[in-house]
């Protein structure tokens, strides 16, 4: 409990740092001492606070989406980017952009979520059809499925001259976050709270279908709730800031090693560490070659792939 409070404190400190780092000069002291003409306060309210909130919300909710996915698929390497969910969501977003461009962003998100859910269910069906002995085959199958969906999306985007948008959805970047353009991420935050409330159900479902039925729960219903949450979070993040790779994989695995998988305990940890990870990577991307920015997706991709390799190799030696 004390360790968790410490982690929350680290997150708050990082959030403050994130508020202070940026290209535009923001005289904090002037603002605090009342000499400011409103300029600094405006930057804070329009750009810095939204960006920091977006980082925290996206980081926490994507990490929790990864955790739920791992419980539902019952595989440590499952997460939205290794199960076709992200690719299906961006395909959905592409389709709705072409078919109904005037739809409000909430509607687009829901359409993307529907596609994401369909893609994930397809993945679940594939897993049922192909008996896989090696746990590492599960994410490989998901990545293959994602590749196929992404190829379809790329073809359509190419035809409709929307490759730029597709790239933006698949590459997380917070530099465009302003007030009025990130609020959808609160949907993700809300769903993360739902995940905490339903945490025990997800843990039970993570024990398997027979366990779940034995304890009097409807397995299919829990699975559906979990996958709906994952799809909605994924599409909310994609629509607003773009995909953050590896996040849902690394954070739950690190938490699993330290506090285990009982989701009632793991959810707050996963949320806080997810936010910390994304905040740190974003701050890093902003200061490495200031005044220019490295997109968050790139920073996370580099850091994340190294950590992913470590996890895979560790698992291998652990299993042997």
């Amino acid at each position: 409990m004390r360790a968790l409070l410490l982690a929350v404190l680290v997150m708050l400190v990082l959030a403050c740092v994130s508020l202070l780092v940026g290209v535009t000069h923001m005289p904090v002291w002037a603002m605090l001492s009342g000499y400011d003409d409103g300029h600094a306060a405006r930057i804070l309210a329009i750009s810095r606070i939204p960006r920091t909130l977006a980082l925290v919300l996206a980081g926490a909710s994507m990490a929790i989406a990864g955790l739920i996915m791992q419980m539902m698929i019952r595989n440590r390497f499952a997460e939205p980017t290794t199960s076709g969910t992200v690719e299906a969501a961006s395909l959905g977003l592409l389709v709705v952009t072409i078919m109904a461009p005037e739809l409000p962003v909430m509607g687009k998100m829901l359409a993307a979520a529907a596609f994401a859910l369909a893609g994930t269910l397809l993945f679940v069906q594939l897993l049922r059809l192909v008996p896989l002995r090696d746990p590492l085959m599960v994410p490989l199958l998901g990545i293959m499925l994602g590749g196929v969906i992404h190829a379809v999306a790329t073809f359509i985007a190419y035809r409709f001259d929307l490759l730029q948008s597709l790239l933006a959805w698949t590459m997380g970047d917070f530099s465009g976050v302003l007030r009025g353009r990130y609020e959808l991420l609160w949907v993700g935050g809300l769903l993360a709270a739902v995940a905490w409330i339903a945490a025990d159900r997800f843990t039970v479902a993570g024990l398997g279908r027979d366990f779940t039925t034995n304890l009097g729960l409807n397995y299919k219903r829990v699975l559906a709730l979990g996958l709906v949450i994952v799809s909605m979070v994924t599409s909310a993040v994609i629509v607003t800031v773009g995909m953050i790779p590896f996040l849902g994989l690394i954070v739950p695995n690190v938490v699993s090693l330290t506090v285990g998988d009982n989701m009632r305990r793991a959810v707050p940890w996963v949320a806080v560490l997810g936010a910390i990870f994304v905040l740190s990577c974003d701050i890093l991307g902003r200061i490495i070659r200031a005044p220019y920015e490295i997109p968050l997706g790139t920073v996370v991709g580099v850091v994340g792939s190294a950590m992913f390799l470590w996890l895979v190799l560790r698992k291998r030696s652990h299993a042997a």
């Binding site: 791992q70 419980m71 019952r74 595989n75 440590r76 746990p135 025990d200 843990t203 039970v204 993570g206 024990l207 366990f211 304890l215 009097g216 729960l217 699993s256 090693l257 285990g260 998988d261 009982n262």
Partner: peptide, 15 residues
């Protein structure tokens, strides 16, 4: 595949 303690598991019997 989930990492649970013995007490966690037994507690789920009360679900």
């Amino acid at each position: 595949s989930a990492r649970l303690t013995v007490r966690d598991l037994v507690t789920f019997g009360r679900f």
